[in-house]
Design a protein around this nucleic acid. Structure first.
Lengths: 150, 150
DNA sequence: AATGAAAGGAATCCCCC
DNA sequence: GGGGGATTCCTTTCATT
């Protein structure tokens, strides 16, 4: 893993449709060397897959809401039950178990506020053991394309 | 935009290395019809790009921290200054301007706690206009691969 | 053993019906 | 929406140091 691998990773992270030839020229090695490096990165799991990036608005997921959740019971069972109940819900995109004032932070993607209210009242409020929650409505995403400098 | 487009998007979102022929067979249309649909999805921006998925541990980004930030001044200038200062920092992966008790929620990726402390004291604390902050250390990511059922 | 070069096969693009 | 041909790209093999 040297500087050239890093460059290859950064290029593919930005645009995986680059051809191996373009990459090899960009980083200054031969085509076959580049091909072997990419294969190794894939096999060792550094590159774990390739995905298309879909416009959230099209998916009906234009609104992002972060929900901070504290549980009533902090036992292992309580945590498990919460995770099980929540992982069924497709609008929940990310769940993190956190340390601090709250127990979990979840990132929810829905179409609009109305959708979020339905989610909140019909789904979230019915989860057993749920204590205090706090919702942070995202007004704007200020960094759609995260930087990748090190 | 019909059910077939949805299926194509769904497949490419999981794995963009699928062949056009494989996709056409999966969704039950001809190869050329499938090609035209994909091209249209790309040109209309529904598919906005293709990316390689990189193992965060390899990038030295194994620890995720959410920071809730409230600003001292809520004027447009204060917000702008904060955004400008923060968008220089490569460890900040997502920034959302939110409504509620806090003004911003930022998602930070670093190697470990030590790294995060450096970030907190050297970078975050020096940003002008910064008021109260609250850090939520992610103990575990409970949904690394978000569901995509509708 | 690692790199560079070349041929065969596959996928993509473009014009046709 | 479906079919066919040319081009480009990817993979494998072989030669080189």
């Amino acid at each position: 893993m040297d500087r050239i691998d890093e460059e290859i990773i950064h290029l593919l992270e930005k645009n995986s449709k680059l051809t191996q030839q373009e990459i090899s020229e960009e980083v200054g090695i031969s085509l076959s060397a580049c091909q072997r490096r990419i294969k190794t990165l894939e096999q060792t799991g550094v590159i774990s897959g390739y995905k298309a990036v879909i416009d959230p608005a099209y998916l009906g997921e234009g609104l992002v809401v972060f929900v901070l959740v504290s549980l009533e019971r902090h036992s292992k069972d309580g945590v498990r039950a919460f995770e099980a109940a929540v992982s069924r819900l497709s609008m929940i995109k990310e769940i993190y178990h956190v340390a601090g004032e709250y127990d979990f932070i979840i990132k929810v993607a829905v179409a609009d506020i109305k959708d979020y209210q339905n989610f909140n009242y019909d789904e979230l409020a019915n989860i057993p053991g749920m204590g205090k929650t706090s919702s942070l409505i995202a007004l704007a995403d200020r960094k759609a394309h995260p930087g990748r400098r090190r």
